[in-house]
Design a protein around this nucleic acid. Sequence first.
DNA 1: TCTCGATCCCCGTCAAGGCG
DNA 2: CGCCTTGACGGGGATCGAGA
Length: 302
Amino acid sequence: MLRDFEKLQTFMIVAQEKSISKASMKVGISQPAVTQHIKIIESYFNTKMIYRKKNGVLLTKDGESLFWILVKLNKTLKDYQKEMVMMIKRCETIKIACSYTVGKFILPQCFTEVKSNIYPNIEHYVATSVEAIHDLQNKKCEIAIVESPFFKENIIYREWLEDELVLVCNKPLERIVKGEDLYSYNWVGLNPQTQTARIIKKHLDKLSIKSDKLKISLEFDKLSEIKDFLISQVEGKDIYVGFLPYLHIQNELKNRMLYTRSVRGLKLRRKMFLAFPKHKKNDSLIKNISHHIIFNTAISMY
DNA sequence: TCTCGATCCCCGTCAAGGCG
DNA sequence: CGCCTTGACGGGGATCGAGA
């Protein structure tokens, strides 16, 4: 009997992602390791489970069958997991350090489910990506969710969601703006020392837009301050623009308080990573909480 | 019976290369 | 160029046997 649930879980993720490299990012191991997991499963069942394609992989008929059995198995395991947590009576509080966007807009949406299905004693607090990883290393938290991975030894990073930074304005602009139009706007900018500002600069560089030539009217340290300022200018005469995560402004867009426009050729996406210490990789709680957050975050991002 | 060192083996990464 | 496989290599846990 194939008892190794790690490999079966890797197979499930490969099936869901339809790519070995994408699955490896989600699992937090290298691509060859994922290939090995699949090979072991294939040699155990003595049949091919996936077709290797140009742009990823597809399940064979046997692969499909195995996948659906595993889906059922996973559901059953989840039920037992709850019982096990009750049984072993772990009572420590699991702390999750996360960035503002995650802590304010994403985690609250999936926390109820994680708490009721996996473990009730979970708390989260907001920190910068650097602080979160620092706290992880100093054992002040068990899990960190960061927008930019500061790759450190002894920490496992698992790819999570993708967040998009969009051009936001306090007045309606034309539907699509050109790169050179950005020089004519009054900008509400972010402190260039912040990681998000660096990401924005990198993307603008690619479009040959010189961020130091933009007319920065005001500069803030936090994205939330940019948002507050733009909202405060809704009634004003002047037009201001800034980059904000789409998740921050969903409600304001709906209520027509703020407006977002596409910049031709610019897709400002940043990946979010869930991180935990290597020595905790076999900790059932950390493993299950991480897994649940990564795969069951029931939110629609865009 | 316990401890400690040698050895084995599993599991992972890295680097190179093949394929479409 | 992106995606996957292969092969070399290393770290670390498990196992085993000798000695106290």
